[in-house]
Design a binder for these strands. Structure first.
Lengths: 150, 150
DNA sequence: CTGTATTCATTCGCTTGTGAAGCAAATTAC
DNA sequence: GTAATTTGCTTCACAAGCGAATGAATACAG
């Protein structure tokens, strides 16, 4: 196996740095255009594909823990973007649904993301963008698998 | 120009999700092994290459704003990892230096990152890892350039 | 020179996330 | 059928980052 190159050792360093910078920009951009932040945008995006899912599943989907989701959905319910409905047979479960306003906001956000993401990938080839997406989806999985065999 | 593929539109969504998950893991991992969090690890990493730099430059380097750096350096000074020294001719400026303990902690962190990053890139080829690093260094730059011509 | 603008760092008030603990509903074990 | 565990969500206390405002020191314009 090849020796890790110095730059590779700083992968997470660059990842973390890029995230704080990009997240600020994304929040600003979304806030200017659609009046919400990136966490709420994540919820809208996820619910667009999984409307009516439970709160825990939502947390899993957007990478936040349960207390964070509770707060996030409180604010979004307050803002009229989503509503909690009872989960049917299971009395503990609550499902989250987009309201009409939520669906319409989601369309705005899709457009914002389209522009923003296009800007992010300037200077990258399609192959490189694919590699980035592969990393972003694979790495969290890799970690959870390797937790045990430290 | 090619039409953006649906998956590409969610680039930032995946980026944000991956970051929260990875950051939690990284904090846990670093905390277990070296007793510090990822923000402090970033400072140690950056200072390893730019020991004695000013607080603003440090913030730029690790992607945090000035108030965040002030707090971070307060905690690290408290912990004996860094010290503030006066910036010479310019009476406003303060420089940050690693203490002996800081240098030694930095070595630990280097090793932690080596292991952690190796884990992150499992399943990726070297070419793909390179693409990820290119993205992480390029995207923040791209944004700041494009701020004006919204 | 002197007044204005700029820069570097800090303080302040607030938001959002975290882990730990708690509660109620459902499931499993015996 | 009851006790013990697990699951889904919420509450709580706290950590850390953000923007805005502030305080000091320097630079610049006339």
């Amino acid at each position: 196996m090849a020796i890790a190159r110095p730059i590779d050792r700083r992968l997470f360093f660059w990842f973390d740095r890029a995230h704080t910078i990009l997240a600020k920009e994304a929040d600003q951009f979304l806030s200017d255009n659609s009046g919400i932040g990136s966490s709420q945008a994540s919820v809208l995006t996820y619910l667009g594909f999984h409307d009516g899912c439970g709160l825990s599943e939502l947390g899993e989907g957007i990478g936040r823990n349960n207390p964070a989701v509770t707060g996030l959905i409180n604010r979004m319910e307050q803002a009229g973007l989503v509503k909690r409905v009872h989960g049917g047979l299971d009395g503990r479960r609550k499902r989250v649904q987009l309201t009409d306003e939520g669906w319409s906001k989601r369309e705005q956000v899709r457009e914002d993301y389209r522009i923003f993401n296009e800007r992010l990938t300037r200077g990258l080839t399609q192959t490189e963008t694919d590699a980035v997406l592969k990393f972003l989806t694979l790495a969290p999985e890799n970690l959870s698998k390797n937790l045990s065999k430290k």
